[in-house]
Design a protein around this nucleic acid. Structure first.
Lengths: 241, 241
DNA sequence: AAGTGGTCTAGACCACGCG
DNA sequence: GCGTGGTCTAGACCACTTT
């Protein structure tokens, strides 16, 4: 725990408990430095963190102020973030149970387009996985996942029944660096009708994504189709002034 | 233009032109400092910017490396960002023309839920605006926008025919601080069928959003419904290691 | 043990908002 | 003009990786 983190955490706390009320200015950087026994630069780093979280904003020549929606942010503190299929979303609520049904699990060569997306050659091998995801036993989404074998050797059906991600992160110690997603509404195809029990009028919310490791290597190209009445996707942005 | 920005820009250029190839380490911070006549801290700030953009990553004790997807990022350099209706998206392509049809433009009090979302009292007044957006004369989306009168006085039908945002930013000098969106797929309702010419099987991609000013004041609560075959929403994330 | 990035300081100057 | 935040420096120590 570094000093700038401690300061940020303490300021965050004081914003929530009302010590520094909404719309009001914080003490200036020099004063905060004295209060925490830190240099002004270190205080600035702490304030940068709070600005990143959307809690405060600074005006040069004037001061640093608490945003009027700072207390709302506290309810759901996140940036445009975490999608990664279903598993993580649900881990908060204990009541809900997730299970998977593996509809396909094969290895093959990628098509030209797939090779491009995963930065592979067409001679390389990938897993081709289709899973039906169930929430409390109810059809929820179909995940079609392509993954280079080289990155995730030893994938097996047992892992597919749980979370691929926790295998990659906890067992293989891979670090996820980011993702690029495209979200669309689609008409249901025959698989959606069969497995998600969609009627022809039930739209599907599709998330097409490429997920990258920390060093930028793409390791997953997937399309997930959700029943429209089961999910929405939340995105929170902060623009820098 | 600050020194750390110049350094970041120059390094960015050198990554793109191959001076610093993908997967390779950059010179260390001390050397970069000497090269640019800057202190190590300043170099670090420049590297932070590149890391934020997803171009490089650092390993303590080892070095700073170019991400293997750095060159791809260059194609579309953006964070999870800019949605704001239609206007901005399209301003790149000169061929396309956007027009609007104002279906509703009234003032009224907010409901309890709307007041909550816009941080208003139920006695305050809001604009209630519905616009049909056309791309090259073709139905594209329906935007339903609620906006506090106090923040955007003087809104008129002429402005609605163009971009509300450019009025707010250029005329009223407001600064946008961020947004919170929820993206869902929906069945078409009767308005979608009428104005977007949706058949009962044509899904709608809905974006519900609250947009905030720089100081955190919510100034727009809107729901935009798009024809599913006209748009997808792109989201790009970077996770901090 | 040597080299690298991460944190931190004290002090300086500048740009900007505000009265 | 004063006070504020924004940038920048030189130098220090620490944590970590690599050899």
């Amino acid at each position: 725990m570094f000093k700038y983190e401690e300061i940020a955490r303490d300021l965050h706390k004081k914003i929530i408990d009302g010590t520094y009320p909404v719309k009001e200015a914080l003490p200036n950087q020099k004063e905060l430095g004295e209060e925490y026994g830190a240099s002004r630069i270190t205080v600035q780093r702490a304030l940068d963190i709070l600005a990143e979280k959307g809690l405060v904003f600074s005006i040069q020549g004037s001061g640093t102020y608490v945003k009027v929606n700072a207390l709302v942010k506290n309810i759901r503190d996140s940036r445009a973030d975490e999608y990664e299929g279903l598993t993580k979303h649900m881990q908060h609520s204990d009541e809900e149970s997730i299970s998977s049904e593996v509809l396909r699990f094969v290895m093959r060569n990628p098509t030209e387009e797939e090779a491009l997306n995963l930065m592979l050659e067409e001679e390389d091998f990938i897993y081709d996985i289709i899973r039906l995801r169930l929430l409390n036993g109810e059809e929820y989404s179909i995940e079609h996942t392509l993954m280079p074998i080289e990155i995730a050797p030893g994938l097996n059906k047992n892992i597919l029944l749980g979370s691929i991600y926790s295998y990659l992160m906890n067992e293989l110690k891979l670090k996820i660096g980011g993702s690029s997603r495209r979200i669309t509404a689609e008409q249901p195809d025959k698989y959606d009708k069969k497995h998600l029990k969609c009627s022809p009028e039930d739209p599907v919310l599709q998330v097409e994504q490429i997920v990258y490791l920390n060093d930028g290597t793409p390791f997953e190209y997937s399309k997930t189709r959700h029943r429209y009445d089961q999910i929405g996707i939340r995105v929170v942005d902060h623009y820098e002034s």
